[in-house]
Structure formats: structure tokens, C-alpha cells
Write a protein that binds this DNA or RNA. Structure first.
Length: 493
RNA sequence: GGCCCCAUCGUCUAACGGUUAGGACAUCGCCUUCUCAAGGCGGUAAUCAGAGUUCGAUUCUCUGUGGGGUCACCA
């Protein structure tokens, strides 16, 4: 392995056509990790040469997405840099300069055909089941380009190209992959094919990371580098992230969602980064949870998977949970309070102390990234703040093991005795251990299910909830007894 | 249709040509002395098919099959 003598420069170059989803983010992440691993430069460049498809606000949205994930860049549209500007539409004179060089060298010419004529050629090729090649219709004489016609590249040599890709290894393509593509459109903007190469040359990009869809146009890029007399960069191509059925590249139609939605759903940025890094790469050992520092250290483009990977939401949930557990207590508290619905926050019962107390059990109960929201919506959080509305039927139903006409009175008696036991505990010592000790002997005698369920239900009002001991501790003695009394009086009616 | 690429448990993946094919998520079972969740322990589960090379193929070669990409004044 020879050491690179040039500083490594990578770039992420999205076009501002909407939000970022996992596919684009993963490409950005790999590019970023590679630059950071090698102490190189990571550039953010905006490729806005298609004014038709551009969506207003996309650039800001992309920047926000990357920042949320902690992916930062050394040069970019927001921070500038030695190769500014970093927005292609602000660099038109540069593309013109390169176009003139190509014209001078005889490697560019105005396309003499109308769009309809070109379309006809394309149809003919299709009818003959042959790939469409513009160069077969290349005019004998090149006219003078005045900007009213598209400027086309004249492929210098028609030959088979072979090149090395960091991910895919040795690749090659035949002559049919080579064609006279458009450099500058009639609207004056360069095409991606032209602009990205000019920029990569100008910005000194050493490693081009990109999606698999660009493999087949690589010979065109290579021949353009050749015509310009420039050394091409290293390529690292990534297989696409696949949709749920594993058969199609994940697209916005398949539910690929805005990466920022993950933030709203309660996923931590570190978890999303960890998850995406592992979608098509792994450190080669059995670690699954890697901090971004460890990711940078272990990352290797050559170990990136060649085949497309499917999104696995459950694994994301698991990773997110792991990160949630790693947060400090204060961070967990902050995280939880962000997801408590605002109407609950307006209640007089809502206090920082309660949030503080419920944090560990909420964290423990989160099984999905979006569970916090789900719990909030289902009112599962609210029982900490609002005294539950109980019904006699629920108590009866769940405690049906107690037979006979007197079951309500029996239950009430149980709860009364529970109250008397708890009442003996000092308020300051009202911990889950103490409560458990006090209740347990009694519960063993009476029947655990019979007594623990009504107690838990009286406290939470829910079928499924944390155990009654932890609930008692969180509510405190006063509130615990008050809730038990409410249940008793209901049963005595 | 031409060209290019890919192929290990359901999913993400590991394995100098020699491993009882490993791990993680999911799933199933047990434990965690009431529920749910979390946690602990354990189980089920894979080399696309067929040839060839080799003492020996997940690994190398070929063919087939399946899948993906591409053939724009989109990126």
C-alpha cells in the first residue's frame, strides 16, 4: 500500500431537489468518514444546474439535516472556502472557461439537431434494440457555438475503458458506454456530467463517492478527463439502499422519508449515523455500537459492501435504545421532556420533579424510537400527571379470580389494608424497596395477582404499566395513598 | 435489447481454499417470585443452481437463474 502523497479531498454534492433521505445521507456519511479518517478535507457542494427540478429551501434543509447528524464540512456554501463559491449556479463562468478550452481543442461542438430530431434517433435505436448513441449522428463539420444550441462533447477516442473502484474493484465498459454528451444546455447551465468534473478538478477532489447509477457513465467522465488532460480521481461507488421488498432502489415513492423526520420521531442523531454506517459496512469485528470517533477510526471504503442493503427499522430501534441508555441522566430528562405533549405540560401537576422521576422508567420502557410519541399519544405518560379515571368493571374484570357477590368489598378491604401498610412508611423513606417490603408479605398471603393488580391499577389506571412499587415511589406517599383511597371509595359505592 | 454490476440465516453482515459457517436485529422458549416493557439465558434459521479447478470450495473459473444499474438539454 503506497501512502497517498496528496491530501485527501472528498465532497458531497447533492442537488437541491427536496429533502435528504437515508440514501443520500449514507453517501455523505461515507464520504465524510473517509475524509476525517485520513485527515483530509470534506467539501459540501450544491449542484443546482437543473433549474426545473429545483425545490426552494432545499439547500437549507440539506444543511440542517447534515448538521443534525453531526456531519460537518470544511468548505461549503454556508462557510465558504478557498474554492468558493460552492453553488454551481454561481460558477457559470468557470464552466464557460472549460467549454472554451474543449472547443479550442476540437473536443466540443454545437449540436445541430432539434430536440425532435434527436428524439427520432433515440426511437430508431430503441426500435433496433440498440443503445442510443448520439455520436453516430455527429456532424462532419462543427459549426460555431453561439449558445443557442447545446454544446456537445466530442469523445476523443472510442475505446474500452478500464478503471479501479475502491468498492467494486476493477471495472470496465465497452465502447457503447461512450457518447457525445451535452456539456452546456440551451439554458446556459452546464449538465451534471460536465459541471461536476470541472468542479472536482478545480476543488482538487481526490476521492469521488457516488451511487451505483454512475458506474455506466464513468467512461464518459474518464474520456472528458482525458480531453482536458487531467488525471481522474479515485472512485468509490456505493450500491443503493433498497426498498422493503429488497428489489428496488429505495426512492421517495417507497416511503424513503426526510431524514429530519427521524429527529421528530425521537431518534438520536448518533443512532441514525451508527445505523446508516452499518448499512453496507462494518468494522470487521463484532462491535455493533460505534461512536462517531470509532466510526472514523474504523471506516474503510474498501470494506463497503457491493450489494444493496435493505433498511431494517427494528435494528435502528435497537441501536437508538442503546444510545438512549448511554445518555446521561440530564440528557435523558431533556429528551423525555421534549416529547411530553404540551397540554400535559400545562397541568398544575406537571413539575420538573415528576419528569425527573419518570425519566428512568420511560427510558427503560422505550422499545421503539417512536415509542415516546406513541406513549404520549396513547395517554400512557399522562397517568403520571393526571389521576386516572377508574371503573369498577375493569377492577372486577381483572380481579375475577376473587369469587362471589362480595368481590368489590373484598377488593376494597385488600386496598384498605394496603393503605394501612403503606401508611406506616415515613414519607421520606417512601421508596420502591420499602413499599415492596411492606406489601409483599401480605401479597403472598392473599394471593399476589389478587392484590398487586388492583393496587397497580388503582395507581395507573392502565392494563399495562410499570409495577406498583416503582409507581408508588414516583408518586410519593401522599399521591399514592390518595389514588388508593379513590379506588376504595369507588369500590364501596 | 446492448453494456455494466451484484448474490451467506427473514434482515444487516463475518469467515489467508481447510471453521461444528461466527455475530447483531427480528423470531421462538425459559428466567426475571401480578401485567406490559426492559434485562438475563438458551433455541430455530443461510452459503441461488449446475459444472469445472483442487486432497479439499462460501471463497477461484465457466454456464445458468435471480436481482440491480444504465443507454436524458436529471442528477
Amino acid at each position: 500500500m503506497d501512502k497517498p502523497h496528496r491530501k485527501i479531498v472528498t465532497r458531497f454534492a447533492p442537488s437541491p431537489t427536496g429533502f435528504m433521505h437515508v440514501g443520500g445521507i449514507r453517501t455523505a456519511l461515507y464520504s465524510y468518514l473517509w475524509a476525517r479518517k485520513n485527515g483530509g478535507t470534506f467539501i459540501l457542494r450544491i449542484e443546482d444546474t437543473d433549474k426545473e427540478r429545483e425545490v426552494a429551501g432545499s439547500m437549507e434543509h440539506i444543511i440542517e439535516s447534515l448538521k443534525w447528524l453531526g456531519i460537518d464540512w470544511d468548505e461549503g456554501p454556508d462557510i465558504g472556502g478557498p474554492h468558493a463559491p460552492y453553488i454551481q449556479s454561481h460558477r457559470l463562468s468557470l464552466y464557460k472557461k472549460y467549454a472554451d478550452i474543449l472547443i479550442k481543442k476540437g473536443y466540443a461542438y454545437p449540436d445541430p439537431y432539434t430536440e425532435d430530431e434527436v428524439e427520432k434517433f433515440r426511437k430508431e435505436a430503441e426500435a433496433n434494440k440498440a443503445p442510443f448513441l448520439f455520436r453516430e449522428h455527429r456532424p462532419k463539420e462543427f459549426g460555431v457555438w453561439d449558445g443557442t444550441r447545446p454544446l456537445r462533447f466530442k469523445v476523443p477516442t472510442i475505446k474500452r475503458y478500464e478503471w479501479h473502484d475502491l468498492v467494486f474493484g476493477n471495472l470496465s465498459a465497452g465502447e457503447e458506454a461512450l457518447d457525445d454528451f451535452i456539456l452546456i444546455k440551451t439554458d446556459g447551465y452546464p449538465t451534471y456530467n460536465f459541471a461536476h468534473i470541472v468542479d472536482d478538478i478545480e476543488m482538487g477532489v481526490t476521492h469521488v463517492t457516488r451511487g451505483q447509477e454512475f458506474i455506466s457513465s464513468t467512461p464518459k467522465f474518464l474520456s472528458l478527463y482525458e480531453a482536458l488532460g487531467e488525471e481522474p480521481p479515485m472512485f468509490a461507488t456505493f450500491a443503493p439502499i433498497m426498498a422493503d421488498d429488497g428489489k428496488r432502489k429505495l426512492g421517495k415513492r417507497d416511503g424513503a422519508k426526510d431524514i429530519l423526520l427521524y429527529r421528530e420521531e425521537g431518534y438520536l442523531p448518533e443512532a441514525v449515523v451508527n445505523f446508516l454506517a452499518f448499512l453496507g459496512w462494518n468494522p470487521g469485528d463484532e462491535r455493533e455500537i460505534l461512536t462517531s470517533g470509532e466510526l472514523i477510526q474504523s471506516f474503510d471504503l474498501e470494506k463497503v459492501q457491493k450489494s444493496g442493503a435493505q433498511l431494517n427499522d427494528e435494528k435502528l430501534d435497537w441501536i437508538n435504545r442503546e444510545y438512549l441508555k448511554k445518555l446521561s441522566y440530564e440528557e435523558q430528562e431533556e429528551y423525555i421532556s421534549k416529547f411530553i405533549p404540551s397540554d400535559l405540560k400545562l397541568l398544575p401537576q406537571y413539575t420538573n420533579e415528576i419528569v425527573h422521576n419518570i425519566t428512568p422508567i420511560i427510558i427503560e420502557r422505550i422499545s421503539k424510537g417512536s415509542d415516546v410519541i406513541a406513549m404520549a399519544e396513547a395517554g400512557e405518560l399522562s397517568y403520571f400527571f393526571i389521576k386516572p379515571t377508574l371503573s369498577k368493571d375493569s377492577l372486577f374484570f381483572k380481579s375475577s379470580k376473587i369469587p362471589g357477590e362480595n368481590r368489590y368489598r373484598i377488593l376494597a378491604d385488600y386496598l384498605e389494608y394496603t393503605v394501612s401498610l403503606l401508611d406506616q412508611i415515613e414519607e421520606a423513606l417512601f421508596t420502591k424497596e420499602k413499599v415492596k417490603d411492606a406489601i409483599w408479605l401480605y401479597a403472598e398471603q392473599v394471593g399476589r395477582g389478587d392484590i398487586l393488580w388492583p393496587m397497580r391499577y388503582a395507581l395507573s389506571g392502565l392494563d399495562k404499566s410499570p409495577d406498583p412499587f416503582i409507581l408508588s415511589e414516583i408518586f410519593g406517599k401522599k399521591e399514592t395513598l390518595s389514588r388508593l383511597h379513590s379506588a376504595i371509595s369507588l369500590l364501596q359505592k
